[in-house]
Simulated assay, not measured.
Amino acid sequence: MSASEQEQRIRRIADALPKLSEGQALWVEDMLMQFARPHSFKANPHSDIITQRFLYDFGDTLRVHHCFSKQAFTKDKFEYVFERIALLCGLPAKLATKGNPGFDIIVAGQKLSLKTEAHEGINADKIHISKFMELGKPKWTNDPADLIGLRQVFLDRVNECDRVFTLRVLSKLPNKWHYELVEIPKALLLSAATGQLEMKTKSKQTGALPGYCYVKDARGHLLFELYFDGGSERKLRVQKLLKSSCVVHATWVFSTEDVLSDDNQATGQLSLM
């Protein structure tokens, strides 16, 4: 946007302000105060998707969201905002149709699967996606051999996309939110093809028995697990996935209240610790 276009936009906003109701003016004031609060947005310099424009537009969208909510950004908002900001950055982007399996959005010709993680007790170093997908209706009895087919459903789903991203909430204290965007390598997820399968034959769960797929490195260290939930939703969970095996593309840390530590009051900088 040119300087003249920016000036015109600011004039339009200024002209509209006197016409706002008291309630509308309050909401606008809240958003302006939010933009003035301490924040720290950082992009991985090697990221091929997070430009400076994307970094700040996405971070500001998160801050606006928390003017109206104390809940973490949800998956549907993540998808919508990702598309809109990609378009603002000049990247061709289009959301997949609702319920589309495999990927959620196409950006610059790449099919992206977008996940979120915001549960209580989140582990900063290990990624947990409670509902990576629904497994549908492949054969699932109490026979451990059925896990082979269930794992193949997962592998087929991963192969339907090009890249997998998850937006994680590491902190949601009243005065500080900490988000990060992490890419889970597709090749890492596909390595489940050689993982160790285990059916929990002694489980007391009703319905189909749950199972696991343990994926380890050459030294026998666990990289991640797949958990096949035999409950009514028949969902697949990805858990204990090492963030050190992934790529952190960006982080957003910001305050939602006028609370600063003594060390930072003079500078207006937000403590990240």
Results as ranks from 00 to 15, higher is better:
132 F>G: 02
42 K>P: 01
251 T>R: 12
208 A>G: 01
118 A>L: 06
25 A>D: 12
242 L>P: 00
218 A>I: 14
150 L>M: 03
163 R>Q: 10
182 V>F: 05
183 E>H: 05
264 N>A: 04
233 E>Y: 09
140 W>N: 01
112 L>Q: 01
104 D>Y: 11
191 S>L: 05
112 L>F: 08
143 D>S: 10
91 L>T: 06
13 I>Y: 00
25 A>N: 09
109 G>Y: 04
214 Y>M: 07
175 N>E: 14
133 M>Q: 00
226 L>V: 08
251 T>S: 09
234 R>Q: 14
131 K>Y: 10
105 I>V: 11
93 A>E: 01
26 L>C: 04
136 G>C: 04
96 A>N: 00
266 A>G: 11
206 T>R: 07
138 P>V: 09
100 N>W: 09
222 L>R: 07
29 E>T: 13
137 K>A: 12
250 A>G: 12
80 Y>Q: 14
155 L>Y: 06
260 L>Q: 04
77 K>M: 05
80 Y>N: 10
26 L>I: 08
82 F>M: 14
164 V>S: 00
97 T>C: 12
180 E>N: 14
145 A>F: 05
120 E>I: 13
109 G>E: 02
146 D>M: 06
238 V>Q: 08
117 E>P: 04
8 Q>T: 13
203 S>R: 04
235 K>L: 07
219 R>T: 11
125 D>N: 07
15 D>Y: 12
10 I>S: 08
89 C>A: 15
212 Y>G: 02
145 A>R: 15
108 A>D: 13
138 P>G: 04
236 L>Q: 01
14 A>P: 03
245 S>F: 07
99 G>A: 13
237 R>A: 13
89 C>Y: 14
118 A>C: 11
158 V>R: 01
63 R>P: 12
119 H>A: 09
37 R>T: 02
172 K>V: 09
203 S>T: 07
112 L>S: 02
228 F>A: 00
96 A>D: 02
205 Q>R: 15
198 E>M: 12
268 G>H: 02
115 K>P: 01
116 T>S: 11
214 Y>G: 01
214 Y>P: 00
13 I>C: 02
127 I>H: 01
5 E>K: 14
25 A>V: 05
36 A>S: 13
209 L>E: 00
240 K>V: 11
